[in-house]
Nucleic acid binder design. Structure first.
Lengths: 209, 209
DNA sequence: CGCCCTGTTGACAAAGGTCAACTAGCGTGG
DNA sequence: CCACGCTAGTTGACCTTTGTCAACAGGGCG
């Protein structure tokens, strides 16, 4: 939780090592401020020197679900490198010192788009953006969560029940019941090893819009 | 879900662009195989061409919690670049075609360790490894999860209750009750805005060892 | 100094976890 | 190629945990 001075900051060290200019500019933040909002045009990347930031996403029922906590030494909003809009909202929960960089400057700093390290970085970011947050009881009933998951996950049928249940934060028995209920409603077809969506509308209704 | 041929594979394209040799070698996998196991020495990185892979972590009660699903076009085990042992277990749940690379070859492919793109990549990976998985009812009672979370998260006290609750997958009221109970047991001290661990042993007992 | 937001506490109902018995389907071995 | 056994999934019954609603209180900010 100590201050990250520019001499010890990994960004400026990398810049010096490669003889490029560090694109970041320091910007103090007060507790309660919001660095960026999910859905906004992603024009900037941040680096945390001091402070705590909570990342949240809008759930489909318009509640804000916390996704992760970020502290000193981490990047924020790197998704700007791969998507036009932010995928998360960054809420600064303490007094903080952040550094900002505009996207073009950041892109230049990262080097050629075809460089392996950048390809790996962008792939990793893409995966992080797409990864659904693990569901929990507070997100709605098991039935809702299961319906949402089937709608969201193409690979739903490729995963053994056991893992699907763990991923949904419910017991395998509960998953079994929820699937049976969705099948009775005609939303999906189920065998012991497969799940096939057949009525998207019914699924959406079960998911609670 | 289509095959990723080497000509269209981002790895070989990046290699050709930079005139380096692609370090990956194809390796078919059968359904049910395990690419790597959490805790094993991290010597290899994978790239998924076809198939579905479930990533799991051991919870503190020795159950296996699914963390994420990976499909074609993603890297597996990139944590080998930053940690000596794997942080997750990768279970192949379908017939699959993976490509493997040894760590030294992968490291050479990624380029100089001081390059900005690589610094950003490694920082992102470090964060991904450290990010705790969102808790859910299936992981134990609210009290247990709260105790575990306080033990694991240094920044626990830096986050408003509301977010902490969402992150633990419980209602704010439930968090309040759990904290009150831990305070009664003498494990922590609580005010409206702060949480201070004061008896680590009691916390560990509440967390269920 | 006062308002409003965030967190706390209480009561109640129901969602879902647990335990147990059962079955389908797959893989192994004869 | 078939039979057997084991694992993963299903279904039922019960009871605890926790989400929900409501009223209240402390603290921060204007």
């Amino acid at each position: 939780m100590n201050a990250v001075a520019c001499s010890s900051c990994p960004c400026s060290r990398a810049s010096n090592g490669q003889r490029v200019r560090c694109p970041f500019v320091e910007q103090p933040q007060r507790a309660g401020s919001v660095a960026y909002v999910e859905g906004d045009r992603a024009e900037r990347v941040w680096f945390v020197k001091i402070g705590t930031i909570v990342l949240t996403r809008w759930a489909s029922d318009h509640t804000e679900t916390p996704v992760a906590v970020r502290g000193p030494g981490t990047f924020l909003g790197l998704e700007a490198m791969i998507t036009p809009t932010y995928r998360e909202t960054a809420r600064v929960t303490t007094a903080a010192r952040l550094c900002v960089a505009e996207r073009p400057a950041m892109s230049a700093w990262l080097g050629p788009a075809s460089a392996p390290a950048r390809v790996a970085l962008e792939q990793t970011l893409r995966v992080r953006c797409a990864d659904p947050v693990r569901a929990a009881a507070a997100d709605g009933t098991a039935l809702r969560r299961v319906a949402r998951w089937i709608l969201a996950t193409e690979a739903a049928c490729e995963v053994p029940r056991q893992f699907a249940a763990g991923f949904l934060g419910i017991a395998p028995e509960t998953l079994s019941r929820a699937l049976a209920q969705l099948a009775r409603a005609g939303a999906i077809e189920v065998t012991r090893t497969t799940i096939t969506p057949c009525d998207r509308g019914a699924l959406q209704r079960a998911a609670g819009d």
